[in-house]
């Protein structure tokens, strides 16, 4: 069974079979990264453009490595110093990339729906590498893959997602994916960092981290953005940490086999204590490794059915 759409825009658009297909494919690609020669010719002759309209280090590098391991020609395009500073619109920029025969466009943008906007107007496949606070599907897929490698299944697991849910694309994509895979999701945050109608997302909500920890098979910490401080959402990072930092003391409340995750970059000492981030329950670096496998899987699944070839 192939993927139904030419693009990967969000977990919301994927069905359970597609999620399983991607995760299974990623599992098989993990092996390539363990080889001495970490390269296969799968996407030879394909052009992938990494179009980043917002700063990113790990996601961009992860995609780039995935592309290179599949032998694609990859081009990085960040918007500072480009035509964007000369007033070119997003649509024109992407049309130009297409005219240069890009097969896949990996796109990061600060506004929800930006990749949908492009995907509906481009022949190339578009992979959403994060659109504002909307979705970050490759992150959720790598998170689900990492959990699955430890637990065998996602069904009936209790996953606590902790932090600035309202502004987090990582949270939204994970919520959509985990709910589809029948995990129990508990969002933990102060009320000001939760969407207004959060209950409609099929999740539970708690303001009290310590009451949730004993129930959690997985604790997924989110980065708290420093610019939230001083606005009306939270009084200070210090007070935020007081209630929502994952400390060694709090972790003692958790089940023995609890998994601790974080999409990075970490604010050590703010939302996660260094001893926890580097401790035995942390699978944060496995997430990073799995990111490459998941992105290879998606590039493979999309690149194998390039719409450009079909339309020719």
């Amino acid at each position: 069974m192939p993927l139904r759409n030419k693009d990967i825009l969000g977990i919301a658009e994927l069905n359970v079979d597609e999620i399983d297909l991607i995760l299974d494919t990623a599992d098989s690609f993990s092996e390539i990264s363990q080889r001495v020669i970490k390269k296969v010719p799968t996407l030879r002759g394909k052009t992938v453009v990494n179009f980043f309209h917002e700063p990113s280090t790990r996601t961009r590098i992860s995609f780039e490595i995935a592309e290179k391991r599949l032998s694609a020609d990859s081009i990085n395009f960040a918007t500072s110093g480009s035509s964007f500073s000369k007033g070119e619109t997003l649509l024109d920029t992407v049309r130009n990339l297409e005219a240069m025969n890009a097969d896949i466009i990996v796109m990061r943008h600060g506004i929800p729906g930006a990749s949908h906007f492009i995907a509906s107007r481009a022949h190339a496949s578009v992979i959403n590498a994060g659109d504002g606070a909307h979705e970050h599907p490759t992150q959720a897929l790598l998170d689900m893959l990492t959990i699955r490698q430890h637990t065998g299944s996602l069904e009936n697991l209790t996953v606590a997602i902790v932090g600035d849910i309202d502004h987090s694309r990582v949270a939204r994509s994970n919520i959509f994916g985990l709910v589809k895979k029948k995990a129990r999701v508990i969002l933990v945050a102060p009320p000001t960092l939760l969407p207004h109608r959060v209950d409609d997302l099929g999740v539970e909500v708690s303001y009290d981290f310590e009451s949730v920890i004993p129930k959690a098979d997985v604790i997924m910490m989110l980065r708290i953005q420093r610019e939230r401080q001083g606005k009306v959402l939270i009084p200070s990072l210090r007070e935020y940490s007081r209630y929502y930092c994952l400390t060694p003391e709090r972790l003692k409340l958790a089940p023995a086999k609890v998994l601790v995750m974080h999409p990075g970059p970490l604010n050590r000492g703010v939302e996660i204590d260094p001893a926890v981030a580097d401790g035995p329950h942390s699978i944060i670096l496995e997430q990073v490794s799995n990111g490459i496998a998941v992105r290879m899987a998606l590039l493979f699944l999309l690149g194998g059915r390039s719409s450009r070839e079909q339309s020719n």
Partner: peptide, 15 residues
């Protein structure tokens, strides 16, 4: 509009 759909889409809502 701030509501169920904005919670899903991550667009900032107007209550």
């Amino acid at each position: 509009h701030e509501g169920t759909v904005s919670a899903r889409l991550g667009l900032q809502g107007i209550p």
